[in-house]
Each structure stands twice: as structure tokens, then as C-alpha cells.
Write a protein that binds this DNA or RNA. Structure first.
Lengths: 349, 349
DNA sequence: CTGAAAGCGCTTACAG
DNA sequence: CTGAAAGCGCTTACAG
């Protein structure tokens, strides 16, 4: 603690510096100040006026007022990121990627709602009244997009099957899901279960469908009563698994695939409590490949999803849109891949 | 995937509904519309006009324009949350807590920067030009607060020693740190190391100082060369630990305390690779008590920090401030407590 | 109780 | 190249 007791400074409340003040100081009109402040001087402002204004701006510490500017332009510098599940650590990386590619000109507004929920129509309206420069929607469902009808540039993240609504950046989760099913089949599993996310987003439907299809085609049985759903929460998943396990065990289940690593952690946790040996007695796997999946013991087998790249790509696309460029045709799809660790293979760590 | 191919709707671009349109429809002035829309009718608008306006609002789907309103009022409905490390999952809970207590009237704007960095003066200026209704700053340092000089209501989170700058909600991390040192001393450790965060925020300084002091007083030696720092990242911590371990081992180190669980995961990961037995050969502990700490094997001993409560309390305080109430005297401090698990105690899980 | 009007701070045709 | 002016959508004294 290097700060000790500090007395609250009673600074003279700094008056907001306006374009008019800069104009007066530089001896020009506010129109000219606006042109200079926005870098729109090309062939419209004399060199010496440019420097006079720049000086005045620096001296007064002038910053264009975001609100006034937005009202005049009809659009703000805010980019809204809507996502159903910010509590997933996966998401922090997505945000970081978005931030990086968006640059400092845009401010990122996070729309946070109840875990797994999308904002209500009223919330969306309120958000839109901020006149966002652009919108990013993560893991949406069709219903939400129908309601949205955004007049602002819009890019979807992780929205398989919804590409027709807006430019999308997707993850090839189906491929990862198939790799996982194949891996389990190769290891000799014949009876499996699936822990899904209750979030009604398309990406989870795709993960499950692809896994089930590939599993079936490889002789793994996953009957409907062996598919359960919980929120993306370690405790919730642990509880649901604890409740389901006796039946599953009786049915000879030897492998559980989970919609996210977070769900899988819950299963691992409960398994430890219940003394279920992993992977000998039960193989466990998830999606996300969170940093902790490499750390847990045993390590968690997981479908790696490139979170940062997802955010970056989406930010890039949105930026192009906001700058009025049109996008190269077809959405972007990023690769996923299975990372095998000790939770499904005694040979791995 | 229940959506299949959808054809992009070519909706007639929905014209923005303004107060003037509502006024025309209801047969009143825009002033009256504004009063009704803002619920400031008490003794100023006739009952039948209120209902006429309400009807018109509903029929047209009018929403007060955030930008126009902000400009007129001089302040927006945006609350800015500044934090140096959003990649820490701890943070997602803090955000959720803030969101909950702030209510739907305020929009949460996230200021995201490079991991561990605070926004530059220029970034802050740009943010302030949005005329935020309030500011929340997580784990700040004194320098940043000096620069900030915010005219908006401001509440600090996890800002030990900085209470003089603004109302604060703190975590008693020192107490947790002391409990941890005591726990290690009781377990017989005499030579320890510390993995710190490079983020120059006060909370980490307090954690370290309290740990070192209590350790020293209980006969645990942590010489300066046994204090290393990395970003809050599993891989970075793993690498730094790998490099330091040979020396530490030679010096007889049997315990490592980490500034965050994330750092500790890195140590656990590297320990597994290097075949270091936990906790027999090396005891490991962190701060945060992330959900994964209960799941890892061995479980990670950690100082539990009440993340959601932190966000909630801070949101509450800010809300009071924004509503013009003055705050009860003295900052709030939330308890922390040590959770002992297998990483420091063979007896625990 | 009501509305006309000023004003918030800016941007952008427009006339010169 | 430059500035006066209109306008963005709202809120808030103010006069009635």
C-alpha cells in the first residue's frame, strides 16, 4: 500500500470544454473545429487554421462530446455485445478478441442478463435507443433475431444455421463433436450419456446432434433418458449428474459427453465425491478447452474452440460493415479440434 | 438446427419513432410526452392526457431516445465499469453482481484494455465523453484515480488503501492471506515462495504484504528471490514456475502461495508435468476460490473472495450515489476466508 | 395543467 | 477555404 491517507482534493470542478471554446481560442468557427477534430480537413481547411485549432484543442484538452456528436450524426460510437452467458470464462476471451479488432474508436457495451437468457424486447429497445454503431450477438437463437430487426450493422458469433439473418462467424462444433464421438467409440465405449446446456442456443443443438449422430453410427447408444440439461454452472451440473448417475450406471454407461467444460467440471467434481474412477469407470469430456481443462487431474478431454479468434474475426467483420464496406461472401467458419487428455484416456495425462 | 434456410427479410426500414410523433397522435405537446414517458406527471399532467399519451406510446412503440435524452439532461444512462483484468473468471461474477443491483435503467459499458492494464488518459477521456451516469473501477491503483478526476459518481471495488478517493467496497484479503500463512505454518512449512500478479493494483500488494508478514511472524522464510510475478494466465504462471522451481527446490521450498487461483493452476499444471507430488512435495494455494478450484485434483486450497457480493454491493452504492443519496459513512468491507483442499493438505480432498 | 421555446454539443449541407 | 444556420431528439424552466 503506497498511498496511505490522502485528502480528497477539492479541485475546482473542471468545466466541460466545448467546441465553441476551442473555436473562440483558435479564432475560427465551430464548424472548422468539428472538421479538424474529426480529421475531415482534406481540401476543406487551410493549413494554418488546422494547426491553430490543433493547438487550441491540446491547450484546452478538448474531447469531442460523444453525446452531442452522436445526436448530430445519428449514430454513436458504441458497439453492443449481446451474449447469453458471460459467466462462461470462454466468453472473456471472446470479449478480448472483439476489443482487439474493434480498435479504440468504438466503445464496447455489454448486454448482461440472467445466466442463459437473452434480453427481453424492452431491454433491446432500450439498448437500441443508444443508437449503437454496431451489434454483436453471441450464440443467439432464431427467435431473438426475429425480434431484434436491428437497423445497425450486425454480426453473429457462434450462430450455426442462422447465417441468413446476418454475417456470421461460426465454429465448426459439429466436426469437433464427431471427433469426440469417434474417439469414444475407438476407446470401446458402447453406452454413453450427454449433459446438455439449458440455453436454447443453436450451437448447443448442433453439438448434441452431431455427437449423437456420429455416436449412433459408430455403435454407441445414447438413449433419450440419458440426455440431461443444466445451466452452465459447475454446481448445477454436479447436482444433475449425481441424480442421474445411479440409473446410468445400472444401464452400463461408461462415458459422458458434456456441452461445455464447465458442465464437465461438475461431473468430475461429483465423480470424485462419489468415488467414481475417471477414466476407468467413466470417461468424461466437454467443449471449450478452457485453460483449466489442461490443469485438472485428470486433464479434461475437450473440443477446443478458438475463443479469441472468434471475437477477433467478428470484430473485424463488424468493423468493415460499420465503415460501409460490404463483406466478402459467405460467413467465416473456424476450425475446432479434439484435445484428448486423461479424463477419457488412461494413456494421456 | 431448427431454422434451416431463411430468406433475408426485406422489411421496410422502420422509421424511428419520435416524441413529436407520439405528441401528434395523442394531441398534446412533446413536453407532455416527455413528462409522461419519464413518469414525472405528479401534479403536472391531467389524468386523461396521461392515458392518451400512454396509449400512443404503446401503439407506436415509442422509446425515449437515449442520445437525445442524454444531451438534454447532461448525463446518460450508461455506467462504465473499468477493470484491469476481465479475463479472470472471478470477474464474470462481479459483473453479474453489478448488473443485478444496478437494475435495467442503467446500461453497463465495459472498459476493456490489455490484460492487466488500465485505460490510458485518452481512453478515459473518450469514455467520459459519453457522459456516464456513474463509474465503477475495479482493483485500481492510485495513479489511475489521480488521472481520472471523474465528475460522475464513482465507486471503487477491491481498492484497499484508496478509500479516500471514493466510496469503496473492499475485500478483506489481508485476513485471508494471514489465514493462509497460518495454515501453511501449522502444516510445518518453513521455506515458501510467492507467485504474484504483475498487475500493479493495490489488492495484490495487500495480499502479498499480509502473507509475507504473517509468514515471517510464524517462522516461514520467503526470501525476495522467491517472489516472482506473471500476468494472470495459466501458461505464464506455469512457465515462470518451471523456471524458478530448480532454485526453489534446492533452497528447500515446500509451499507456494499464489496471488490468484489462475496462477496456482499454472503451478499445478507444471508440477504435474514435472512430476512434483502435490501436496507431499509442494503445497500450492491461491486466492479467488474459482469454481474450478473445487474440481481440480487435488482440489486447490484458496482464499475465498465473494465476487458476486462485491459486484452487488458496489452497484448498490453507485445507484444510491446516482440517485443523489449520500452514502452511509465508511466503506464496506466483505469477509474472505480460507478454503483448505487437497493441494495443501493430504487429509482434505 | 399546458405548450412554446430555449438549450444541450455537435455535424453537415449550403451559400459565399 | 469559411462560417452562419439548421437540425439531431429530448428536457426543463417559464409564462400562461
Amino acid at each position: 500500500m503506497d498511498s496511505g491517507e490522502q485528502v480528497q482534493q477539492q479541485r475546482p470542478r473542471p468545466r466541460r470544454v466545448t467546441a465553441a471554446m476551442v473555436a473562440a481560442r483558435a479564432g475560427v468557427s465551430v464548424a472548422t473545429v468539428s472538421l479538424v477534430a474529426n480529421g475531415k480537413t482534406a481540401g476543406r481547411v487551410a493549413e494554418d487554421n488546422i494547426s491553430r485549432v490543433r493547438e487550441a484543442i491540446a491547450e484546452l484538452g478538448y474531447v469531442v462530446d460523444g453525446i452531442g456528436s452522436s445526436l448530430a450524426k445519428g449514430v454513436s460510437s458504441i458497439v453492443i455485445l449481446v451474449a447469453p452467458d458471460i459467466s462462461n470464462p470462454f466468453f472473456a476471451k471472446v470479449i478480448a478478441g472483439v476489443r482487439e479488432s474493434l480498435g479504440p474508436q468504438y466503445q464496447l457495451l455489454l448486454s448482461v442478463t440472467e445466466a442463459g437468457e437473452f434480453p427481453e424486447a424492452a431491454d433491446v429497445r432500450r439498448l437500441m435507443s443508444l443508437r449503437p454503431a454496431g451489434l454483436l450477438v453471441d450464440a443467439p437463437n432464431a427467435g431473438f433475431l426475429e425480434d431484434l430487426a436491428s437497423p445497425s450493422p450486425l454480426v453473429l458469433l457462434d450462430a450455426p444455421g442462422l447465417e441468413s439473418y446476418a454475417p456470421s462467424v461460426n465454429l465448426d462444433v459439429a466436426s469437433g463433436a464427431r471427433q469426440l464421438a469417434a474417439h469414444l467409440a475407438d476407446a470401446g465405449h458402447r453406452e454413453a450419456a450427454y449433459v446438455d446446456s439449458v440455453t436454447g442456443t443453436e450451437t448447443f443443438a448442433v453439438r448434441r446432434a452431431a455427437f449423437l449422430e456420429e455416436a449412433a453410427s459408430r455403435g454407441i447408444s445414447v438413449s433419450p433418458e440419458r440426455i440431461i440439461s443444466t445451466t452452465i454452472d459447475v454446481g448445477a451440473a454436479a447436482g444433475a449428474f449425481a441424480e442421474a448417475w445411479p440409473d446410468w450406471q445400472r444401464a452400463g454407461v461408461t462415458a459422458v459427453a458434456c456441452a461445455t467444460d464447465t458442465h464437465a467440471y461438475g461431473v468430475l467434481q461429483e465423480a470424485r465425491v462419489a468415488g467414481i474412477r475417471i477414466p476407468e469407470e467413466l470417461a468424461v469430456a466437454g467443449f471449450d478447452d478452457l485453460p483449466y481443462s489442461a490443469t485438472s487431474n485428470p486433464g479434461l478431454t475437450s473440443v477446443h474452440l478458438p475463443a479469441t479468434a472468434l471475437g477477433q474475426k467478428a470484430g473485424e467483420q463488424l468493423r468493415s460493415l460499420m465503415e460501409g464496406k460490404s463483406l466478402g461472401h459467405g460467413g467465416v467458419t473456424l476450425e475446432t479440434s479434439l484435445v484428448v487428455r486423461g479424463s477419457t484416456s488412461a494413456a494421456a495425462t
